[in-house]
Amino acid sequence: MEERIRTVLASFEGKRNDLIPMLQAVQDELGHLSDTAMKEIASYVGMPESKVYGVATFYSQFYFEPRGEHEIKVCLGTACHVTGGLQIVDAMERELGVKCGGTTCDQKFSLERVNCVGACAIAPVVMVDDDVYGRLEAKTVKEVLEKHAP
């Protein structure tokens, strides 16, 4: 793994202001930012690893655990909120057996809540990877999941 990280880092000069692009590039390669990856980045940039972690954890775009094959985003923007988005969250968490922010044991799904995906007309909405599912109800959640993991 260290090899892969170093290969990605080699295209950077190691300047501090490249830190976020470096974090992004390494996440693109590995799917998430492991402790090892952040240590490598820290030593490459010459800053304490705690600082790299501090920067990475500030942004919601970075993940610290391996991600599932499919990314589920349950929308909780205003429209989804008032049309029962929270029930969808509950149903997803129940079906998958993980809390928001988690990944299923079989590494199939990662679950997240987001604020508005821009499809308010069909609220409540869930996105699985690039597919959008609208007007969901708690009981139809299972069907959505089965489409992606038959």
């Binding site: 402790d35 952040m38 690893e49 972690y53």
Partner: peptide
Amino acid sequence: GAIDFAFRGYETSVSVLGN
């Protein structure tokens, strides 16, 4: 430099790499 602020907003805490 073993510790730094990590996370954001209300969740902010003093943390080491990997919390």
